[in-house]
Every structure is written in structure tokens, then in C-alpha cells.
Design a protein around this nucleic acid. Structure first.
Length: 630
DNA sequence: GTAATAATGATGGGGAAA
DNA sequence: TTTCCCCATCATTATTAC
């Protein structure tokens, strides 16, 4: 039976369309030279309004049947009441008009059960008997949940010290060898990088001339910093870090370095030593739960934001936690010295994802997305239980990346295991486990491991099924786009505080949108998207977001911009004037030059792509400057 | 031409052992 | 305190298949 389920699961990937979204595209999509507007759905015919309301909530993760029932109870107009009703519905309803297998599956998936479990339960009980199916599913969940809970709780019961990541100033001494080494970069690229950081060309070339052709970026920025301090000492001294006057955009960037130190008379060597110390001081929390997670929400109740950091507009920045040394100090420094919040998504779903988030959102009264996603591998992929060997103790997957294991590797593993009856020797176990962890392989048969399918990755990351499927995207690109995206439940938990602040919805400037993780998170939270300006270089990703926007019948406008470097001050001003400002600036800049998987160009924030972080800063500064004074 | 496939270490944190 | 080992990691490139 499980074998049949397996067949169903894998084969349907190419054969069947599971209906997650109902209506066909109705609104027009116009493509301008550099940008495209996806119009609102309001213009389309009124006769399908009920269908649209259903789709709206289905897109948030509820089942069609649940939604239909809620509409019946509360009326079609009052979406708030419908949502309220859905949120209170404890996945107990089972009176659905079962017209197709797909609908039954959707129904139970909408309740929060995994597809594999649902398929298995349907096969056990028959499609018509929904009561029995539900009972089976609840039994499976009860069995699986208890050990999972214990695992999570025990993970962080030992470490609650209140002062999580509080300290930015440790005192370990470091030698000068801690500088950023960049032997490959020539003078021109260093010049470019420094100007990108906000320094003038004159400052940059003067620094290169003064420090020599072999100087590192760290030395050069130190030099410029010292020069700026000397220049500003008489007017700004003593520097008051909090609050400080609101500078213009360019001044802002230059000042960030400056405000990091409070004594402009220190020698260059002293400054460099202290910067290295700061680099060292920014440590990752263990457990990596940031300012709190749903099961443990009260670690940090207050934090201090500088005057210039306080929203609105609110902003949310994301990147990989395990970046090269010093990167997060730089990121924090350029984002108003806000302390990054490091969170591992394994506390939100069944796969790890260690990320740092810098934001000025409130951190109290957060709430998680519902339905809660599966928290263990077995919950997420129940069919693997049958084949999971006792010596593979994994309960969580590692980080979902952009590539999957080769067929040759899974073949090598199969052959290595087939040499032995029963449990293999420890050396073979270690080899297999190492590879399984490295490539996130799951057990799909006797001696048989396999990489995850794209739709399984979508589920783990909190996206609707088939979010990245079809419309011209290749399977390879699906893995890539998904690997580069947010974990929706994690991000949604942080963004949930906006619901109370903006009950009427938000205008969003979404930078490096990718496949729309932030948009999906806000939508699933029930925060209306008034207008979204999305900046995304990849055409397939833009298409994915457009499709989702139309299929979820968003009321507002979606505006696409391809190249972030083309989004300059005048354009930002124009957009803000048109949409009435932005409430939220959200995005994660390219990580490929920071990520550990990159064997070739792990160049830090100086890297070709990761340097676009400074465009995020530039645009954020512009939006803040152009926003009305609070 | 695109898509799929397979092979390609280094970095840095954490913790045990010396 | 230092050294060593274990472990995870939003990827890139070259080659082959279509």
C-alpha cells in the first residue's frame, strides 16, 4: 500500500494538477519596458465574487470546504468574520461534498495534515468515509507529536538566560591578522566597492593612494573613517549616538561608520583592533531562537532602537546567519545599528534554515501562522516511516538549498546498503548518514534514499503547493528559486505584529522579492496587500509572483521592477507619491557570496551579487527620508 | 540553444579532549 | 587555555543530454 502511495506521490508531480487555486486568470497584465503592472482583480465579473472569496482564504492555507462553510455561516461580505471563524475551526469538520479524490486531499491538507498522510488515510478508509479518514489522521498525528514536542522542548529548556545576544562588545583581543583579506580584488574593484558603500570617489581613491595598492577594504574603510572623523570632530563632538539628527541620504551612509565608535581621537590601530573585537563579539545565539518563537516567546521583551531606526516605515532585512566573519556587523552597522535577530526555522517547520533578520518591527504579541506546518520529518513525510532505519536518528532536515543530490549518489548508497543483511556496519552507517544530512535525503524504499521533490520543498518552506510549478519554469529553476527563498512561517511570525498596526492593509516595497515569500507570509497572516512594488531580477520569479497575485485575487496593484539599481531617488519619490508611501520595506539581498556552499566566490559583502545589500540600504534610506515625519 | 546532471572544499562555530 | 575534531552550509562550474 505504501508503495502505491509512493507511486501516487511521485507520479502525480508530472501528471496531475492539484487544484489549489480556482479561477483562471482574469485581470490584465501589461508589460512596460522595464516594469509590468498586474492589475487588481476588482474589475473582473461580479458573478464569481464568492469564488474569489473562497480562493482568497484557500490561498491562506485553509481548505475549500472549511472556507465554504465559514462563508455560509458568516455571509460572503464579512471577510473578517469568515477569517475569525476559520481560525477558530479546530479541523473537526468532515461533512464535505466529496466529488473528487483531489478535493478530499485538499480538504485534509487544508486542515494542516501532510499530503502523504492524507493519501495514506484515504487509501486505508476509502474516499467516501471522511470521518474515518479524519480519525486515522488524528491518530497518526497524536502518535507522532509526542516525541516531537519533547525534542523541541528539551532543545531550549536549558538555555534561558535573558541576556540573549545582548552584548555587542566583548573583549577578546585579536591580532591584526583578523583583517578582511581580499587578495584578488584590484584597485578598480575596490574603488567601485567603496563608492557602493557610500563613500565618495575622492575619498576612496585618496584612501587607496594612502594605504597602498595591496590594502584591504577594512584598511581602506578605516582610513576613510578616520579622515571623516577628524573632519567632523569639531562639529559633532562629543558624538551623541542616540538620538542623532536626521542626515541626508549620502551623509547617512557615511555616518554609519562614524557612529560605531564614540571616541574619534583613537588611533587607527586602536580603531581597527576594536572593530575586530566587534566582529568577534557578534555571536550567534544557542538555541537560535532570536527574540522568541511561538513555543518560547518571551526571551526578549524590549529592545532599544535608535531614534532614526524607529518606524514607520517598518523594514525587514534577511540573510544567511552563517556569513563570513564581520559581515553581520557591517549589515547591522548600515541598518541603524539594530541588533540582528538570528533564528533557525527548525523551530517553525521540519527543516533547518539559519538566518539573520534585521528589522524595526515590534517584537511583542507575535503570533504564528495557522495551520501549523509539520514539525518533524515523519510528520511532513509519513510515508518515509516505513523505510526509515532505526540508526538514522534525524527528526529534522537540514537547510534546503538550491541543488539536489545526484542519482549516482543515491545509487551508491543503495549498493552500499545491499551488501549487508540487517543493519550495516558502523562505517557504512556513517557514510550513509553523512550523505543523507548533506543532501537532505529521505527514505523512500528498502535501502533507497531520495532527494525531496520541488512540491515537498514548497510545503516545507510554507508556500502553497505548486507555487513554483508550471508557467515556463524548469525543475532545476524551481529548486533554485525555492532554495533562495524565505521560510514563510518564520518570516510571518515576525511580520504578524503588522496586523494590528495596519488593519486596512499595507503598501509594500519588496526588494529582491524572489518567489514572493514576504507577500505570501503577509497574505497568509490576513494582512491585506494594498499595493506591492516588487524588485526582482529573475523573470521566472516575477512570473511566479504575478501568477500568485492573480490567483489569490489581490485587490491592490502589483508593480514589477527588474533591476534594483534602476530604482533611484526620483523613481522612489514618484512611487511613494503615487501609492501614498510605503509601510513596509522587506527583502533579503543576495547571499551567494556569503553562503558556505559557495566554493568559488565566497567574497562576503564585497562579492558581485551580495554587494547589492548596499542598494537595499540606499533605498531604505531614501524611503525613510521621503516618508512623512512621525 | 536550454535543461539536467554530477562533481567540486572552505569557513567558522561548538564542544570534547589534551 | 589550547588544540583538535565534528558539523552545517539560500552555490558554481563543467559536462552531457535533449
Amino acid at each position: 500500500m505504501d508503495g502505491n502511495c509512493s507511486d501516487f506521490d511521485w507520479d502525480t508531480e508530472d501528471e496531475l494538477e492539484i487544484e489549489n487555486f480556482g479561477p483562471p486568470y482574469s485581470s490584465g497584465v501589461t508589460h512596460a519596458h522595464e516594469e509590468a503592472v498586474v492589475g487588481s482583480a476588482e474589475a473582473s465579473s461580479a458573478s464569481s465574487s464568492s469564488c474569489k472569496v473562497i480562493d482568497h482564504f484557500v490561498g491562506m492555507g485553509f481548505s475549500k470546504e472549511q472556507v465554504a462553510k465559514a462563508i455560509e455561516e458568516n455571509g460572503e461580505e464579512n471577510t473578517n468574520l469568515i477569517l475569525e471563524s476559520l481560525l477558530q475551526c479546530p479541523a473537526k469538520e468532515s461533512s464535505l461534498p466529496s466529488s473528487s479524490n483531489s478535493k478530499v486531499i485538499d480538504h485534509f491538507i487544508g486542515m494542516g495534515f501532510s499530503e502523504e498522510l492524507v493519501v495514506k488515510a484515504i487509501q486505508e478508509n476509502g474516499e467516501g468515509n471522511t470521518d474515518s479518514i479524519l480519525e486515522t489522521l488524528l491518530t497518526y498525528s497524536a502518535i507522532e507529536k509526542s516525541p516531537a514536542k519533547q525534542h523541541i522542548d528539551s532543545d531550549h529548556s536549558s538555555d534561558v538566560e535573558g541576556s540573549l545576544m545582548e552584548d555587542f562588545s566583548d573583549f577578546d583581543s585579536l591580532s591584526e591578522t583578523e583583517e578582511i583579506a581580499n587578495p584578488d580584488s584590484d584597485e578598480e574593484s575596490r574603488l567601485l566597492f567603496l563608492t557602493k558603500m557610500g563613500y565618495t570617489e575622492e575619498e576612496a581613491s585618496a584612501a587607496i593612494e594612502r594605504c597602498g595598492p595591496d590594502s584591504t577594504i577594512a584598511e581602506l574603510t578605516d582610513f576613510i573613517c578616520a579622515a571623516q572623523m577628524a573632519k567632523a570632530a569639531d562639529s559633532l563632538f562629543p558624538i551623541e549616538v542616540y538620538p542623532r539628527p536626521k542626515p541626508s541620504s549620502n551623509d547617512e551612509l557615511k555616518l554609519k561608520k562614524r557612529q560605531f565608535d564614540n571616541n574619534p581621537w583613537k588611533s587607527k590601530k586602536q580603531m581597527r583592533l576594536e572593530m575586530s573585537e566587534d566582529d568577534e563579539a557578534l555571536h550567534l545565539p544557542n538555541p537560535m531562537i532570536g527574540f522568541g518563537i511561538p513555543t518560547d516567546p518571551c526571551h526578549v521583551t524590549n529592545r532599544i532602537l535608535t531614534e532614526s531606526a524607529i518606524g514607520p516605515p517598518y523594514f525587514y532585512y534577511e540573510n544567511v546567519a552563517l556569513a563570513p566573519k564581520g559581515v553581520w556587523n557591517t549589515i547591522s552597522r548600515f541598518l541603524y545599528d539594530i541588533q540582528p535577530e538570528f533564528v533557525d526555522s527548525l523551530y517553525f517547520c521540519a527543516s533547518a534554515r539559519k538566518r539573520g533578520y534585521v528589522h524595526n518591527l515590534p517584537i511583542e504579541n507575535r503570533f504564528p501562522l495557522v495551520p501549523l506546518p509539520p514539525h518533524t520529518i515523519k510528520e511532513a513525510f509519513p510515508l518515509t516511516r516505513k523505510w526509515w532505519p532505526s540508526w538514522d536518528s534525524r527528526t529534522k532536515l537540514n537547510c534546503l538549498q538550491t541543488c539536489i543530490a545526484s542519482a549516482k549518489l543515491t545509487d551508491r548508497i543503495r549498493k552500499a546498503l545491499e551488501l549487508h543483511d540487517g543493519d550495516p556496519p558502523e562505517s557504512v552507517q556513517k557514510y550513509v548518514i553523512d550523505q543523507c544530512k548533506k543532501w537532505n535525503l529521505v527514505w523512500v524504499g528498502r535501502n533507497k534514499v531520495a532527494p525531496l521533490e520541488p512540491d515537498e520543498v514548497e510545503m516545507l518552506l510554507g508556500f502553497p503547493k505548486n507555487h513554483t510549478r508550471g508557467g515556463g519554469i524548469s525543475r532545476t529553476d524551481r529548486y533554485k528559486s525555492l532554495g533562495n527563498s524565505f521560510q514563510v512561517d518564520t518570516v510571518a511570525y515576525h511580520l504578524s505584529v503588522l496586523k494590528e498596526i495596519y488593519p486596512q492593509g499595507v503598501n509594500v516595497l519588496s526588494l529582491f522579492s524572489g518567489i514572493g515569500g514576504a507577500e505570501v507570509a503577509l497574505h497568509r497572516l490576513g494582512i491585506p496587500l494594498k499595493n506591492v512594488v516588487s524588485v526582482e531580477i529573475s523573470e521566472v520569479n516575477r512570473n511566479i509572483l504575478s501568477s500568485w497575485w492573480e490567483q489569490t485575487n489581490q485587490k491592490g496593484k502589483l508593480l514589477h521592477i527588474e533591476d534594483i539599481q534602476q530604482l533611484e531617488d526620483n523613481k522612489i519619490e514618484q512611487l511613494m507619491s503615487h501609492f501614498g508611501g510605503f509601510d513596509l520595506i522587506v527583502g533579503g539581498s543576495p547571499c551567494n557570496n556569503l553562503a558556505g556552499s559557495n566554493r568559488y566566490h565566497r567574497d562576503g559583502l564585497e562579492g558581485k551579487d551580495s554587494a547589492l545589500f548596499f542598494d537595499y540600504v540606499r533605498i531604505l534610506d531614501s524611503v525613510k527620508r521621503l516618508s512623512p515625519v512621525r
